[in-house]
């Protein structure tokens, strides 16, 4: 249960090897011990993450999750909730893709949509069903400012994030009164595995800062947050920039 002061007892990371997800678990574990379920593909990194979180005081369980497999969302959520309620679930899996290739390779583009959007929809649907029955819980969805106004340089990724953002925002509204809520997180550029080797964009931040914002957002029962917070106003500006001008912006 999320207690009166916003502390939690159990955390599910879907895409459990994500740098942002792991930073969020570490941030929660810095406050108190808790149960952490790591749902991810079976990789050496998953084992390393489980060990790391155990070392930080987590009571860690590992379950299989693969966004390429249509049966996986249902199986992973069932396995994750088999040993008790989940207080907070972080939906963090995702891929950036190679923008140049995505422009011409329809199979790659459809695959990115499968991972970032289709699987995210399936996971959200499963989580919401389970949490409705629980009567409590928070779903944290890692969206992106890239989905808020989609740019020509990475429109495939941007569109998948726009779709998942719309889904989770709507899901949150549909859950009003159920005891369950959704926090949509819109980070800008985060220095993580996903952006390794890329030059920093303006207002670049770290997984730790995103984690801090997630914990505070859950505590305050927010529905949407931007990280860093200033991006909220930047994006408001960009959303209203006329298309002809936006297209000519060099990002």
């Amino acid at each position: 249960m999320i207690d009166a002061l916003g502390s939690i007892g159990s955390l599910l990371l879907v895409g459990g090897t994500s740098d942002i997800a792991v930073a969020t678990a570490r941030r929660y574990l810095a406050e108190r011990p808790l149960r952490v379920v790591v749902a991810a593909r079976d990789t050496p990194r998953r084992a390393a993450v489980a060990d790391e979180l155990r070392g930080a005081g987590g009571q860690v369980e590992v379950v299989d999750f693969d966004a390429d497999d249509p049966a996986s969302p249902a199986g992973a959520v069932a396995a994750a909730t088999a040993n008790g309620d989940i207080d907070v679930a972080v939906v963090a899996f995702g891929q950036l893709g190679d923008a140049a290739r995505l422009r011409t390779d329809s199979v790659a583009a459809a695959h990115l949509a499968q991972v970032n959007f289709v699987a995210a929809v399936a996971v959200g649907t499963e989580l919401a069903g389970r949490m409705r029955t629980q009567g409590h819980g928070v779903i944290v969805a890692l969206s992106s400012v890239a989905g808020e106004r989609v740019r020509k340089t990475n429109y495939v990724y941007g569109s998948t994030k726009a779709g998942m953002d719309a889904f989770y925002s709507g899901l949150g509204d549909s859950l009003a009164g159920s005891g369950v809520s959704v926090l949509v997180v819109r980070p800008g550029f985060v220095r993580s595995k996903m952006t390794e080797g890329m030059p920093d964009a303006p207002l670049a931040t770290t997984p730790e800062v995103v984690a801090e914002a997630i914990v505070a957002g859950v505590r305050a029962r927010r529905h949407t947050i931007w990280v860093p917070g200033a991006l909220r106003w930047v994006m408001t500006g960009l959303r209203h920039t006329p298309r002809a001008i936006f297209r000519r912006l060099s990002f």
């Binding site: 249960m1 999320i2 207690d3 009166a4 002061l5 009567g135 409590h136 009164g177 159920s178 005891g179």
Partner: peptide, 14 residues
């Protein structure tokens, strides 16, 4: 209905 205790924190439906 959503229920709380006397401190009016952490409501949950039952």
């Amino acid at each position: 209905v959503p229920l709380t205790g006397w401190g009016r924190t952490a409501p949950t439906p039952a």
